[in-house]
């Protein structure tokens, strides 16, 4: 008799703990870890009136490290407002400068080629597609742009020019200078004279027959 009462209690306790277990497990079924009340970039906000979780800077704010005191570097113009004629970046070695040019090539191919083309002749895909462009993208291989101070290219990328938008928010200042340097390299390559080649280069080019196509 006592035993059976004990077993009945045991059964009841088992049932109860099973029910509790189900309850406890079910309590885990919620999504607040999946969808946490934090904002991630570009997320819509329910808090701010303009629904943007990213807040615009208070006017006049200067972020740490963005004081931009170096006027030529950040504007492409010297203190008198004249376009600079040399890249305001220091290079400690030729290797560093080559890296800089390669970086410029890479950035140019990303941001500039859609309009200006890989050669900088203004024959990018957009100009080919936009048959009736009122103002076609610039061809860098003109006397006007060949004689333009290098600060001009930086200035154009920063502020935009004609129908070209500003690329300041997409390309960082250092990269804009790298692109400007690469544009100069493109201009030289498309305006090269056979006298610019070393004897060895000339020999190897002549044997492949590619010298003529690069001399204009």
């Amino acid at each position: 008799m006592r035993q059976s009462r004990a077993s009945r209690w045991l059964l009841r306790a088992l049932k109860l703990s099973l029910g509790l277990l189900v309850l406890v497990t079910a309590a885990g079924c919620h999504t607040d870890m999946w969808i946490q009340p934090k904002t991630v970039p570009l997320e819509e906000s329910t808090f701010y009136a303009d629904k943007s979780s990213a807040r615009p800077l208070v006017p006049g704010t200067v972020a740490r490290g963005h004081l931009e005191e170096d006027t030529p570097f950040f504007t492409g113009r010297d203190d008198n407002g004249q376009l600079v004629t040399a890249i305001p970046v220091k290079f400690n070695s030729d290797k560093e400068f080559k890296e800089f040019l390669l970086r410029g090539q890479e950035r140019f191919n990303i941001y500039c080629t859609p309009c200006h083309g890989r050669l900088g002749d203004g024959q990018g895909m957009i100009s080919k597609r936009g048959l009736a462009l009122r103002r076609p993208p610039a061809n860098y291989h003109t006397d006007r742009l060949r004689n333009m101070p290098i600060g001009h290219f930086y200035d154009v990328m920063t502020k935009g020019y004609g129908v070209m938008f500003s690329y300041a928010s997409r390309v960082e200042p250092q990269d804009r200078w790298a692109i400007a340097a690469y544009i100069r390299a493109l201009q030289l390559s498309q305006h090269a004279d056979s006298a610019d080649y070393t004897a060895a280069q000339r020999a190897s080019r002549q044997s492949t027959g590619s010298l003529g196509t690069e001399t204009q």
């Binding site: 859609p114 957009i126 597609r129 936009g130 938008f165 928010s169 997409r170």
Partner: peptide, 13 residues
């Protein structure tokens, strides 16, 4: 991309 990026080309084509 911000809309500005789209409009870099689509203000013209």
């Amino acid at each position: 991309p911000p809309t500005e990026t789209c409009m870099s080309c689509h203000s013209q084509i």
